[in-house]
Simulated scan of single mutants.
Amino acid sequence: MTTTTARMARRPQLSEEIADLVGNQIMAGDLRPGTFIRLDETATTLGVSVTPVREALLTLKGEGLVDLVPRRGYSVSPLSRQDIEDIFWIQLTLARRLISRAFENFDDTDRAELNRLVEDFAEAASSGTTASVVQAQHRIYRTVNLAANSDKLVRILATVSRYIPVHVYAADPEWCAEQTALNRDLAAAATENDAEKGLRSFEAQFTDACARLIEHLESAGVWDES
């Protein structure tokens, strides 16, 4: 059993873990539209029973990532460039509100913490693992979200963020370098209490991420027959 499957086997929310894993594979183009996802094969690969896999696929069906084909099972739903653009448009729209509120609430402790986390990200980006890069960026966003003090909005954003295959970015040295610079822009904006500058940093992050994911999916041949 691999480290990933061993970790899955002992986590309580197993179906959610599987939904995240399969959803990321779909959004990264590893599982292409029209591909059938077999319950038994997936369960065997992950070292789990069929039940949490079925529950995970039901979750993904609700998110529009898979379709249930009668008497055949689950297949990956169509995914267009417009879908990707829409996902990032929603993210950016929500993030604008959150960053504005966060800047209203930031105190000196928050600003110092944000600066520290940005440098932690830079270190992870230059010498860490993909997982450490993902975690470091998550901590930065979490700090902003906590300062915004908008629980329901953060929860909605978290739901939308499930569509983003974060490992694709974390494994890309060019993205890591660009994100390091944008994170530092955000920290500088917080230090200067410049909300407009902070908004520009977030807008640049999401615009760049959208373009990179579309390019990645094009390179993977997801739309070759479109």
Rank of each mutant, 00 (worst) to 15 (best):
T3M: 13
T5C: 12
A6D: 09
R7N: 12
M8V: 03
A9C: 08
A9N: 09
R11W: 12
R11N: 13
Q13D: 13
E16Q: 11
E16M: 13
E17N: 14
I18Q: 03
D20S: 02
L21I: 09
G23H: 03
N24T: 11
N24A: 14
N24Q: 12
I26T: 04
A28T: 08
G29M: 04
R32L: 13
P33Q: 02
F36Q: 03
R38H: 11
R38G: 14
L39M: 07
L39N: 12
L39E: 10
L39A: 05
D40A: 11
E41A: 06
E41V: 12
E41G: 14
T42P: 11
T45R: 09
L46V: 05
L46M: 07
V50G: 15
T59W: 06
L60Q: 00
K61F: 10
G62A: 04
E63K: 14
V66F: 00
L68R: 11
V69P: 01
P70A: 02
G73R: 03
G73I: 03
Y74N: 00
S75F: 03
I84N: 06
I84R: 00
E85P: 10
I87G: 09
F88M: 06
W89N: 10
W89T: 15
Q91W: 14
Q91F: 10
L92D: 04
R96I: 13
R96S: 15
R96A: 06
S100V: 09
E104G: 03
N105W: 08
N105C: 02
D107H: 00
R111L: 09
A112W: 09
R116F: 14
R116W: 07
V118H: 00
E119V: 06
E119C: 07
D120N: 07
D120S: 12
D120P: 07
F121Q: 01
F121N: 00
F121Y: 06
A124D: 04
S126V: 07
S127A: 07
T129D: 09
T129M: 01
S132C: 08
S132A: 04
V133K: 07
A136Y: 04
Q137T: 10
R139Q: 07
R139N: 05
T143H: 12
A147N: 00
A147M: 02
N149G: 06
L157D: 11
A158F: 15
T159P: 06
V160S: 09
V160L: 12
R162F: 11
R162N: 10
R162I: 06
R162H: 09
Y163N: 10
V168N: 01
Y169C: 01
Y169R: 06
A170Q: 03
A170H: 00
W175I: 11
A181W: 12
L182N: 05
L182W: 12
L182K: 09
N183S: 05
R184L: 14
L186I: 02
A187G: 04
A187S: 10
A190N: 03
A190T: 00
N193M: 15
E196D: 08
G198I: 03
R200N: 14
R200M: 15
S201V: 05
D208P: 15
C210S: 12
L213D: 11
E215D: 15
H216T: 11
H216W: 12
L217Q: 01
L217Y: 04
S219Q: 09
A220Y: 08
G221A: 01
V222P: 04
V222Y: 05
W223Q: 02
D224Q: 06
D224V: 10
D224W: 01
